[in-house]
């Protein structure tokens, strides 16, 4: 297991920060919290961070101003904006300033987790670019899956679902959660929550055909869980 990644969470809403922090530590990260820009600047000087989760509306100013500072300070720090503002121009502005990703509140932790992991992979910090889960090996960059070292043909959406599951093992992912993830990732306007069933059914079938264990369990008909013992 490589060293834990330090993550700075800049969020003024304490309850949300608390949940985010506990989620991050449960998922193998080492989170730090800053409630405003001042605290964030101080922590950035003291610690080495892999990534920053930045809320835009902060009590002592707009988080936008911090983006440039962080990127000037240390370019390889990953930066995900988490904002209540779904405004396109904010998104564009943030990404232009150097942010790596943009997440709109409310968001699912599993989505944050997947994005954070993908960001860390992209930042080239993991030696191994592939994701291994027992007999399943995923290569996110090439969109390739090996089951028992044999390549498995999946559609883009099935691959996306599998990657999402593997990134969020042992976690109940509700139908709403999966639907949101699919429609936002694949910009598919017609993707309703009901279609999640169809896609997961197909994915499970393909995995079973290549003799993979049945990891994806239905949870009382409200969601799914990728269960790894």
């Amino acid at each position: 297991m490589p060293n834990k990644h330090n993550i700075l969470v800049v969020e003024d809403e304490l309850e949300l920060a608390k949940s985010t922090l506990s989620f991050l530590s449960e998922n193998g990260f080492l989170p730090f919290h800053a409630k405003d820009l001042k605290a964030a600047r101080k922590l950035l000087k003291q610690e080495k961070f892999t990534a920053v989760l930045l809320d835009l509306g902060l009590p002592d100013g707009d988080g936008m101003s911090l983006i440039k500072e962080i990127k000037n300070f240390k370019e390889e720090i990953g930066l995900i904006i988490i904002s209540a503002k779904d405004a396109l121009e904010k998104k564009v502005q943030g990404l232009e300033l150097g942010a790596d990703d943009y997440l709109t509140k409310p968001f699912f932790f599993s989505e944050l987790n997947a994005r954070l992991k993908s960001l860390i992979r992209r930042l080239n910090l993991e030696v191994n670019q592939e994701l291994v889960c027992n007999e399943i090996t995923l290569f996110p960059e090439q969109m390739k899956v090996l089951v028992h070292a044999k390549e498995l043909e999946l559609t883009a959406k099935e691959f996306g679902l599998l990657l999402y599951f593997v990134s969020n093992q042992n976690r109940v992912l509700s139908k709403t959660n999966l639907g949101e993830f699919m429609s936002s990732t694949y910009v598919d306007y017609g993707f309703t929550d009901d279609m999640v069933y169809t896609h997961i059914k197909n994915l499970k079938k393909k995995l079973a055909e290549s003799n993979s264990k049945d990891y994806i369990k239905n949870v009382y008909g409200v969601g799914y869980k990728f269960t790894v013992a």
């Binding site: 985010t20 109940v172 509700s174």
Partner: peptide, 24 residues
Amino acid sequence: TENVAHELQTPLAIISSKADELMQ
């Protein structure tokens, strides 16, 4: 308008995150 967005979305984010956590 922007403040309303922020003010409403943040509590919604808290509800959603807590419910998601409970589900686990």
